[in-house]
């Protein structure tokens, strides 16, 4: 399958701190890759760097086969949709117009049609004409997901798209992203919920202190050793109804 996104030996700094320190991963068409790691592991920066939104001090990011930093903004926008963690929406636009922002190069009517379909897809089609300021946090998160789904790009990168959502909404978001991947698109998503990562992702990339610590099939990448050394968890995988489930307890701070 075509590799749509690739990060190779990425190093990046924010201020004086080295945030990425040898991160690598790749995402192919038709697969959903979960980016996991503790807080501060560099997930958001890795995701942004891969899309060409954060500069690398070393290494290379490739988007659709070309070096991301050499692409024009338009080319980047055509190759990848990005759903940032920040869910603030500055003005009280109707949901359908927020979702239509995903397709700025289509004519108004075509963008609105796509936006309505995407809102339906994430279960908020009935709120299409409501202002986003009059919505709950969960509804707004769905509208923003619909915006990302409206983008006509082969890759979707979502930064913690289920943070702060109720269980139903978490599952809905991941189901829609999974459906995207099954339809042949590529999806990269950063997640804190390791059970959900294992259940929905084809592969998991574990980042630790800015470098890739493990990569592969979910339960293999999230091995007991990685769970212990990276996540500070004493954990085992159980086989549950819907897939693997992580039973974990915290290790004491010193091992």
């Amino acid at each position: 399958m075509t590799v749509l996104l690739e990060l190779e030996n990425a190093h990046a700094r924010i201020g004086g701190a080295e945030v990425l320190n040898g991160a690598f991963f790749s995402v192919r068409a038709g697969e959903l890759v979960a980016l996991c790691g503790p807080n501060g592991a560099g997930k958001s920066t890795a995701l942004r760097a891969a899309l060409g939104l954060a500069p690398l001090t070393q290494g290379v990011a490739r988007l659709g086969g070309d070096e991301a930093r050499r692409l024009s903004e338009r080319q980047r926008g055509e190759r990848a949709a990005y759903l940032p963690q920040d869910r603030s929406i500055a003005w009280n636009l109707p949901a359908v117009e927020v979702a239509a922002l995903g397709a700025p190069f289509l004519t108004g009517q075509a963008a609105v049609e796509r936006a309505r379909a995407a809102l339906d897809e994430v279960g908020v089609g009935h709120l299409a004409d409501r202002g986003v300021a009059e919505m709950s946090g969960g509804e707004r998160a769905r509208v923003l997901l619909a915006r990302a789904l409206t983008v006509p790009a082969p890759l979707l990168a979502a930064d913690e798209p289920i943070a702060g959502l109720d269980p139903d909404a978490q599952l809905l978001v991941l189901e829609r992203l999974r459906a995207r991947a099954d339809a042949g698109r590529a999806v990269l998503v950063s997640l804190h919920d390791l059970s959900l990562a294992a259940r929905f992702a084809d592969r998991v990339v574990v980042l630790d202190q800015g470098r890739t610590a493990a990569e592969g099939a979910p339960t293999a990448a999230l091995s007991p050793r990685i769970l212990k050394t990276v996540f500070n968890l004493d954990a085992v995988w159980l086989e549950a109804l819907d897939g693997p489930w992580l039973a974990a307890r915290r290790l004491s701070p010193h091992g």
């Binding site: 903004e73 055509e78 940032p84 929406i89 003005w91 923003l144």
Partner: peptide
């Protein structure tokens, strides 16, 4: 209009911000 979504999303939108 795109900036409504914030700086990051706007930068990745394909428009020349």
């Amino acid at each position: 209009r795109m900036l409504t979504l914030g700086e990051e999303a706007a930068r990745a939108s394909g428009l020349s911000m």
